[in-house]
């Protein structure tokens, strides 16, 4: 399992990286954490002509709150999210998600940006970013543009990233007080892709009703999936088991999983129904400050 040949380029700045991408055409790839790309190259599923290593560009690995957003720079490694105590406190859904990805060594290198840019519906962050209603900053030769997460995933393994563009930042709106979320995943063994997983992010109103609900689903369709009807059904309602069961059913209705080694489509729908209910319960608890 030997990777094919390529030219390796190390830009010192973002504009230089973008220029290199333009210069080398479709076959050039951005190398960040490398944990989607290098395994694909070893299997010779990917044979890029050039790798543009952006990991040495200073200032891309930030994680900070600013202007109403949690901003995650494109080179921020997964491990950073686990290690920052304030992230654990304020963004439990994000930390839950990170901890379910692969294993500690992989998380030391892998980036959140890469997890999204790969466009794999089996990856974990896409559903989480859907739940958070995140925005993606994409930078190209003509500057930066912002793409809502709902418009970022365009097809199977395809994103809104155009040739010559780099995903530069992920922006999560800072949740209001009385918010909570969680990520629940059924996997065959630790570090595996999900048989099914759900990301839930809730905000409660003063009367305890659900003010905002975000629900993303992992690996249940060709694209990361938002459970829109479930979100709508929750909004404005008081939390209850019956409501959560209804949301679970609506989330399952939004899913179109495929049969695979992890199980049948029907099995995955059962998982979605159940995981949604559990995730909603826990998210409410967290929003109420009970866990």
């Amino acid at each position: 399992m030997i990777p094919p040949t390529f030219d390796y380029l190390v830009p010192a700045t973002l504009p230089e990286a973008i220029a290199l991408l333009h210069e080398h055409g479709d076959e050039a790839k951005v190398l960040a954490g490398g944990h989607s790309l290098i395994p694909a190259m070893r299997l010779r599923f990917a044979e890029p002509s050039h790798l543009i290593d952006i990991s040495h560009i200073p200032g891309l690995d930030y994680v900070r709150e600013e202007g109403g957003f949690l901003k995650i720079g494109t080179m921020a490694r997964e491990v950073v999210l686990e290690d920052l105590p304030w992230i654990s406190e304020r963004y439990p859904l994000l930390v839950d998600t990170t901890k379910m990805i692969a294993d500690p060594q992989v998380r030391n290198l892998a980036t959140v940006g890469g997890n999204l840019a790969h466009g794999d519906p089996a990856n974990d962050h896409p559903a989480t970013m859907l739940a958070y209603r995140a925005e993606i900053e994409i930078t190209g030769a003509s500057g930066a543009r912002i793409v809502p997460i709902d418009e970022f995933f365009t097809d199977f393994f395809t994103t809104a990233l155009e040739h010559g563009e780099i995903l530069t930042e992920i922006r999560i709106p800072i949740p209001p007080s009385r918010s909570g979320g969680c990520y629940l995943k059924v996997e065959r063994k630790v570090g595996d892709y999900a048989a099914a997983a759900v990301a839930v992010q809730l905000s409660l109103a003063a009367d305890g009703s659900i003010e905002q609900a975000g629900i993303g689903l992992t690996n249940v369709a060709a694209l990361p999936t938002r459970a829109v009807d479930a979100e709508n059904a929750l909004r404005g309602q008081q939390p209850s088991d019956a409501l959560f069961a209804q949301a679970g059913q609506l989330a399952a209705d939004a899913s179109s999983p495929a049969d695979d080694l992890r199980g049948s489509a029907e099995y995955k729908l059962t998982l979605i129904r159940e995981l949604i209910q559990r995730a909603l319960r826990r998210s409410v608890e967290r929003a109420q400050g009970r866990s």
């Binding site: 944990h35 395994p39 070893r42 299997l43 692969a102 060594q105």
Partner: peptide, 21 residues
């Protein structure tokens, strides 16, 4: 060949990584 087994784990600037990836 798939970053699964960890036999190749080393420290890069003090952080454990898989040297096969």
């Amino acid at each position: 060949d798939t970053s699964s087994c960890g036999a190749c784990t080393i420290l890069l600037n003090g952080k454990s990584i898989k040297a096969c990836t």
